[in-house]
Design a protein around this nucleic acid. Structure first.
Lengths: 148, 148
DNA sequence: AATATATCATACTTGAATAGTATGATATAT
DNA sequence: ATATATCATACTATTCAAGTATGATATATT
């Protein structure tokens, strides 16, 4: 499953924002772009989209930055990817082989719809909170390994 | 889930070939393109790919055409789409946010891999044979409706 | 009030992938 | 021979992804 670079940026960045939000702080695009090693001005646009779909809030100026619009356990991977990705979310449209509506109907009923449904089910089951927990556990594990 | 036009052509076309193969006959690209109402010379290329991945066999010349390389119940939707589609099949590559390997690791383990696995599981469960059966049932239903 | 730090908005550029054409060669049943 | 088919390769046009560029707006700090 090809998840776009943009979508993966958004996911990784949201985990970061969640980390700061959990500690009651705003975080800037610059900060996160540095941490992730990706383009700042590109990430800026991504955040713009995330804000428009009300997953992030922001305040301008020094000490400003972004923050989760609601708690991390209430934001799913589906929420994020469906605002960023065109392909993953949109349902496969029909009427390509319009000359044969029976085939179209069967493909929709037995292939496209079940696939859409499964993808959505799986991605709505994973929240940013879950991912943050795992990342923290992972970092702890790494720190432990260093002390051996 | 965006399944490409090409992929949808391939699926629809394979169901058609299966129909002819079940009756022991070859079928030409021209025939199928007409039936589906799509570009003949484009479908030609699609069939080239399906042949190279050994889902179809062919013979040239008059009375020639294509035929399933094995029985319809042994060809899955995954088999077809993985030869045609780039994006659906290939796993989401990592090392985009290489600055934060922990995040990358967690996203792979909890998002990408489970997603890849589910998509694959679902699509390998559906065979061309299944789809052909459904299409035939559908056509029968339509014929019935006409006689009312 | 000036300045530095941040978001916000819009438009542009570049490269790759889709979808589809065009041309011609090769094989074979009749 | 000829018509019917596959086979092979190269081209084109459009769209989308990824990333830049430019500048405006808001605000905490000094």
């Amino acid at each position: 499953m090809k998840i776009s670079v943009k979508g993966r940026y958004a996911l990784a960045a949201m985990i970061q924002v969640a980390d700061w939000s959990a500690r009651g702080e705003n975080v800037s695009v610059n900060n996160i772009a540095d941490k992730l090693g990706i383009s700042k001005i590109y990430l800026e646009q991504v955040f713009g989209q995330l804000k428009k779909s009300e997953l992030l809030t922001s305040i301008k100026g020094p000490k400003g930055g972004y923050r989760l619009a609601r708690e991390a356990s209430g934001i799913t991977v589906w929420d994020i990817l469906s605002t960023i990705e065109q392909g993953l979310t949109e349902k496969t449209e029909e009427t390509v082989t319009s000359e044969s509506p029976e085939i179209e109907l069967v493909m929709r009923g037995s292939v496209y719809s079940p696939l859409d449904k499964e993808v959505r089910r799986l991605l709505t089951d994973i929240t940013v909170g879950d991912l943050l927990d795992e990342v923290r556990a992972q970092e702890e594990q790494n720190a432990f390994m260093l002390n051996m």
